[in-house]
Design a binder for these strands. Structure first.
Lengths: 232, 232
DNA sequence: GCTAATAGAGAGCGGTGCTCTTGACGAAGG
DNA sequence: CCTTCGTCAAGAGCACCGCTCTCTATTAGC
């Protein structure tokens, strides 16, 4: 009875898995707007209406892919960080940067889904927020570790953040505990700088201009590391 | 004969203008994927097939909107820069940053079209590249002006760029003449940082985290100014 | 074994981009 | 002046989309 129930559940889970797999493949080749429930159903030998037994709408399928994407990126970032010596904070930051860029280049459409223009009419449900910060959590840990090890020497060039940002810093501190406001602010600069760089490359802003993208990326991330206060 | 020909051309130009106006309004409310030729035609009291006399495909209409968007953003940036004292280089940089952010917040869907995920299957034709660098050209002038005025003091924290980037720097130098490679590299860091920040805010990455976005933006752009070497 | 839940199939609605054909109109040339 | 030719709006139609509804067959649980 329990076994039989799980039997049905199992085939259902298997079908859901197959749907998302096919959908992810379609996403990778055609992009988000080219993802169609009917095409997925066709490839599964199903009639289109049957898909709705498993995903009540196209947006729900998209949500599943988004969550998968955040988790895949987060996992890649976690692995990259884990492969570094714990006290090599600059190395950990650079490893995270490279992991983000590599994953984005390998999965451009998924990256666009996560960090590109939001799909109109689509509101990210609450289930996405936890996977969405997996990569940021790794980054926050690096910043916090470096700070607590006394290896984060703020460059003298940055102004100190206005007092009003203290509230927001408090929220961000859940990812990088016990770090002062100015470090939080610089951490945001570096983090947005990383994704600005990756997005520019991936979304075509470097076309006809930058050819040595890996080298430029490496150099720019080193610059941001210095701005963040990481040692050389 | 010439007058009559221009008469026909005139009504044609007027219709094209009306189509793009309506399309831009639809784009602003529904976003790029919600832009439909049929809806535009409906609003014009035309039958959908008639639109194809003026825009051979949906992508061509999109291209027109993209060019308009680049020009609108470029114009906003040019005006913001022009309103500053020529030798207030930091002020000019900050004015450009604020102009980009303000325009993006006012036209989120157009910004997404320009700097968000590329529309799948859409390749930007060559006509878009000139308008696309209007804002960057303004930025390049600021950097070059500051450098030649001797007001660009490179912070000691940045590594110098690898020699291989010299080729790409040569291309970038068409926008900021006679500027050394290391300045070019830092200029790219700041520029991608600006758009990374705007994109994060606009694409929802700051949801549930950052509330004082204008203040954070201001502070971060000041940080990037210092990284760039601009005076306080 | 019977009942109730579940899954798939099919038809259908309104929408999309795009193509092709048809008929009307206006401008240019004999 | 009249004809010819290019332009344009219109309509029908194709293949696709998301999504809903109904009907039937299967299956699980009592």
């Amino acid at each position: 009875m329990n076994a039989s129930r799980t039997a049905r559940e199992r085939v259902r889970a298997e079908l859901i898995r197959e749907i998302t797999d096919i959908a992810r493949r379609h996403l990778a080749t055609e992009g988000a707007t080219g993802l169609s429930l009917r095409a997925v159903a066709r490839e599964m030998g199903m009639v289109s209406s049957a898909i709705y037994r498993y995903f009540p709408s196209r947006d729900d399928l998209l949500t599943a892919l988004i969550i998968d994407g955040y988790n895949a990126l987060g996992e890649a970032v976690e692995h990259a960080d884990a492969a570094c010596a714990r006290d090599d904070f600059t190395g950990r930051w650079l490893a995270v940067c490279r992991a983000v860029r590599a994953w984005a280049l390998a999965h451009p459409h998924e990256y666009a889904l996560l960090y590109g223009s939001p799909v109109p009419g689509y509101a990210a449900p609450q289930d996405t927020v936890a996977p969405a910060v997996r990569d940021t959590a790794v980054y926050g840990r690096i910043v916090a570790d470096a700070h607590h090890a006394g290896r984060l020497t703020p460059p003298p060039i940055c102004p100190s953040p206005p007092a009003i940002l203290a509230q927001d810093a408090e929220v961000v501190r859940s990812l990088m505990p016990d770090v002062p406001d100015d470090v939080v602010a610089r951490a945001i600069v570096a983090w947005t700088g990383l994704f600005g760089m990756v997005s520019f490359e991936l979304f075509g802003q470097f076309n006809n201009t930058i050819t040595h993208r890996a080298e430029l990326f490496e150099h720019n991330m080193a610059c941001l590391a210095r701005l963040l206060g990481l040692p050389e």
